[in-house]
Amino acid sequence: MIDLHIHRSPTKPSLRLSEWLNVLRAGVLGMNDGIISTAGIVLGVAGAQQSSFMLFIAGISGMLAGAFSMGGGEFVSVGQQRDMQRATAAKQRQAISDDYPKELAELTRVYTAKGISTELAQQVAIELMAKDGLSATCREKYNIELGNYFNPWHAAISSFFSFFVGSILPLLTITLVPAKWKVAVTFFAVGCALLLTGYVSATLGQTRRRKAVLRNLVVGLLTMAVTYAVGHLFAI
């Protein structure tokens, strides 16, 4: 078995920026899905003219099913990513053991490609390979930091609770607002929430905010409209 353990300080390291961003990404997506999915479910039931109790049961069921689905999906996805990182690191360690000069030459080419002179690049590569060749080559060739793999539990917990929190808004509006206004209020409240999650998602992803917000809003409102219309077809 190949040991990829590296020595660390006694204190527990904090999450790196990349992992914090991964957790936030999972949280925002989970909340967004919680809002849209639960709103779609309760509006579909509302369209079928069901009682407030039935709306509540449908909403709770969708909330729990969606939260476990999102959390489990993130756990599997990030866990697979972590396994791939570890396998790549193990493969790279073997490559260094089998052909050290080749890996040294590849690391040198990485630095020359960044604009460093050949002589200096070779000197840097030699020193890094002598100190910790596995860490240096994994970082430069595969963007992997040894020992700092993504934790699937962080993403899973973030997705689970964010989906749960996102589900609360449509669930409360559809069950607590008077029957005359519950559908309209739910549409409005969910629309506002989608504007917020779209903005946050675009900010984290460093993409165009207006486009992301409008896209998120349109998809959410369309989902709710379709489910409400389908439910209305089966109105009692």
Rank of each mutant, 00 (worst) to 15 (best):
I174W: 03
D132R: 00
T38W: 02
N143T: 13
K141E: 13
T112R: 03
S201N: 14
R16D: 15
L134G: 02
R82K: 06
Q206D: 11
P13F: 07
A229M: 14
L194Y: 10
A48H: 07
L134M: 01
T137P: 01
H154N: 13
L196C: 08
C192K: 09
L43S: 07
D99V: 04
T173Y: 01
S69P: 08
K91C: 11
I6Y: 03
M70T: 08
S159N: 10
P13L: 06
W153M: 14
F150M: 14
M224D: 04
K141F: 15
L195M: 13
W20N: 09
K180F: 08
Y228I: 02
V45A: 10
G30I: 12
G220L: 12
G62V: 06
D33N: 08
Y149E: 09
Y199M: 11
N148H: 11
F75C: 09
S159C: 08
P178Y: 02
Y111K: 03
G73K: 07
D83S: 03
N22M: 14
T173E: 00
S69R: 08
A39K: 08
L172S: 07
I126E: 15
L4V: 11
G166I: 01
A202Q: 04
G231F: 15
Y111V: 00
V190L: 09
G231L: 14
H232C: 13
G115Y: 02
I126H: 15
I236A: 08
L221E: 01
D99H: 10
L15P: 03
Y149G: 01
L107T: 10
M84W: 14
V110G: 06
I126V: 15
M129E: 05
